[in-house]
Amino acid sequence: MNFIKNIKNMFSGSGGELEETSPVAGTEDSPIESLVTNPEHPPNKTEAPVIRRVIRAPVASNDLFPPDDPEKVLIRAQPSTTGDQCLFMVNRPLLPGYSWWFPTFESAAGSPLTERLFSLDDVESVLIHEATVTVTRKDKTIFDWKPLGAEIGAAIREALEEGGDLIAETIVNEMPSEEAVRHGIQKAIDEEVNPGVAGHGGRITLEKVKGNTITIQMGGGCQGCSAADVTLKQGIHGSFRKFVPQVGAIFDETDHTAGLNPYF
């Protein structure tokens, strides 16, 4: 069956044509127009279509790591489609319940895990989120993450095997409450972000706060915009961190299915 042909048929002519040519119309008892519009109502009535809200269900995650050797530190790397960042998933918690963004070498001071990561030449920034590490690299012309990934994996493994705190105690102790994060981010959205994107017909809403990790949704003109990624990273991200410096991972709701593609 050719779906494009079906859709073209739906737009191209009368119900009779559709019924005759569309493979979707299986029987005389279920003509195509009654299936592709509202089955309860006959065609050619000027009733407003039912507007439905699209919701999402939790996605069951497959076991990422085999449970046969829980003592062993296992790390799996997943480069982004653009190649500018790589997610490292670890089989044990690194910063349970929270996330933290380390934008510079200096910001890593006192955190054994990120100090090790920033000692690698090509590491530009690091985001720790629960049991994941997301790294951006300085050299944007290299898309093969395997060589640097091996070094990052070794650094994570060393830090874990060394024992003790992975992240500076001061960071964990000074983590703001969810309410404070929610209040600050909402303020950023209301006062700076939404007025900024309104000119493009866009709208940002705060969907969820967990610890200092936030999930936002882009709507209006932002939705489906090819520049949305850039907009998020360069503009909205900066505003959020200005209002709430301790905000960690920032997820776009559309990429949040597995919680693995944070913008930061």
């Binding site: 439905r52 269900a57 790390i75 993450w145």
Partner: peptide, 24 residues
């Protein structure tokens, strides 16, 4: 996972293919 639909909702069932991974 579990979700309840009604006459005002529909469930998003599109997911992009998983990104390739490697062990390190």
């Amino acid at each position: 996972g579990e979700v309840k639909l009604d006459e005002t909702t529909e469930l998003d069932i599109w997911k992009d293919p998983p990104l390739p991974t490697f062990d390190c």
